[in-house]
Design a protein around this nucleic acid. Structure first.
Length: 441
RNA sequence: GUGGCUAUGGUGUAAUGGUAACACUAGAGGUUGUGGUCCUCUCGUCUCGGGUUCGAUUCCCGAUAGCCACCCCA
């Protein structure tokens, strides 16, 4: 039996067709109320701990001169080369949505003369970052980072403290199975020599490498070390390691950092292939990894020392170190680990109204109650007492205040104890006092 | 950016070349102004566009989005 003719079908469709909905831009997402509860949990713990550690909050603009990131993050990094949202303003300024947080904070440090403040200067920030990448789970074009930076202190203990704080935040929010991956990538003194050594070594083994590694050899030699191809891993295992080729200063610094970490009883993994994707790092680099049930590990955040950056951006020679983590990633991890999401919001009191006269009374009563710090629910749009009591029940209200036609005229209110079902009529003037008494507020 | 997989009601899942099943959620009811149990009903036309077909949600192509790997990173 033939169905509706295709032509007719098209016609029907055309007639009932709704306007095309507009979607979010690729790689961006809404954060809805239920999820906000976890977001708050993460951010509030971060803020609290940063406060305890003596950090002050800084907010910098989302939009900066493109030049800042060219100089700050590094011209030849992926982030700057192909992942920035850049455009020209009406006035002709070349600007970019920030792809990371550190460059802006350093700019602010210099611009606001913070080098004249009492050192070290400790700052934390949170907010959206933008990178034009192909989206995937835990990887968005707009994502949020929470980070903190310390300026003006060279001491390896500072490195350890930053790492400790990073670790501690994850502990506090409930991500416990983390490991600290740590490495030193040297400074402008010793790194170039090591790079040369590494490329020389790989040049000799070039025919044993995969296609990707042949490309890495010229593009990003440090990345050669963490190729997952069997044959490349063999080559990598015998490759010179940067920690064996650090200059004396970098070597001592790194050694001290590790000793301080031991003192703090932070366990870490020396990871000689840890490189980081931003150009500005010197000496200590580290990441916080989380291992899931299957044993797979993923990076929640990373950071390191960047002693040259302040100068690169036009400031005085200033020691600096920082860390940042992806809020989305932390939130997703917590969800996977079964973080309890409380959907409904519990109320103390629920207002039930019947008819317009009662609605008017309820509006005023609502105001009186919230002024007395009572959590109140209502459903002004609903008509039947039944559905309103259902809402009262669902919001775990302890008391329902019912005003019907009769009560509105008499200026009284029915107080219903939701647990026992006992009801009592009181005059409007004493309702708030009676409710407070029952709630023991 | 390269390669691959997927796309069904608010959510999570079925089935099928002849107009979609189940669970949960939500809304409205179950006689007059009363909740939490129970019962009834309602919410999709199968992401969008095109093609094959008498007929497509089901096959093919394209778009879009999500996911996976690489790359990179938070």
């Amino acid at each position: 039996m033939p169905r509706v003719k295709k032509q007719d079908k098209k016609e029907i469709k055309r007639r009932r067709k709704k306007l095309t909905p507009i979607q979010t831009i690729k790689g961006m997402k809404d954060i809805l109320p239920p999820e906000q509860l976890i977001w708050n949990h993460v951010l509030e713990n971060g803020r609290k701990l940063c406060g305890d550690f003596g950090f002050g909050r800084i907010e910098t603009p989302i939009l900066e001169h493109t030049e800042l990131f060219h100089r700050g993050v590094g011209q030849i990094t992926d982030i700057v080369e192909k992942e920035m949202f850049s455009f020209e303003t009406r006035g002709g300024d070349k600007v970019s949505l920030r792809p990371e947080g550190t460059a802006g904070v350093v700019r602010a440090y210099i611009e606001n003369g913070m080098s004249k403040w009492s050192q070290p200067v400790k700052l934390y920030y949170e907010g959206p970052m933008f990178r034009y990448e192909k989206p995937q789970a835990g990887r968005y074009r707009q994502h949020h980072q929470f980070g903190f930076e310390i300026f003006g202190d060279e001491c390896p203990a500072i490195d350890a403290q930053i790492i400790y704080l990073a670790w501690k935040i994850f502990q506090k929010i409930g991500i416990k199975n983390t490991t600290i991956q740590i490495n030193s990538i040297g400074c402008s003194e010793c790194r170039p020599a090591y790079k040369k050594l590494l490329t020389d070594y790989y040049e000799m083994k070039i025919n044993k490498l995969c296609m990707d590694c042949k490309r890495r050899l010229t593009d990003n030699p440090l990345r050669l070390l963490d190729c997952k191809e069997e044959k490349c891993m063999q080559v990598a295992s015998a490759a010179p390691q940067i920690i064996d080729h650090l200059c004396e200063e970098c070597h001592d610094h790194f050694k001290n950092v590790l000793e301080f970490l031991d003192e703090l009883e932070i366990s870490y993994v020396l990871n000689s292939s840890l490189v980081r994707g931003l150009d500005y790092y010197t000496k200590t680099v580290f990441e916080v990894w989380e291992s899931n049930a299957e044993g797979a590990q993923s990076s929640l955040g990373g950071g390191g020392r960047y002693d040259d950056l302040v100068q690169i951006l036009g400031g005085e020679d200033t020691f600096a170190i920082g860390f940042s983590f992806g809020v989305e990633r932390a939130v997703e991890r917590l969800l996977q680990n079964g973080f309890h999401l409380e959907r409904k919001i519990n109320k103390d009191v629920f207002l039930v109204q019947l008819g317009n006269m009662a609605r008017k009374k309820i509006l005023k009563l609502f105001d009186n109650l919230i002024d007395n710090n009572i959590i109140v629910g209502e459903s002004l749009g609903r008509g039947s007492i039944k559905s309103q009591l259902r809402m009262a029940n669902r919001s775990n209200s302890k008391i329902a205040l019912i005003i019907g036609q009769k009560e509105a005229i008499d200026n009284t209110v029915i107080i219903r104890d939701m647990e026992s079902g006992m009801q009592e009529v009181v005059v409007m003037e004493s309702v708030v006092a009676e409710v407070k008494k029952r709630l023991k507020k």
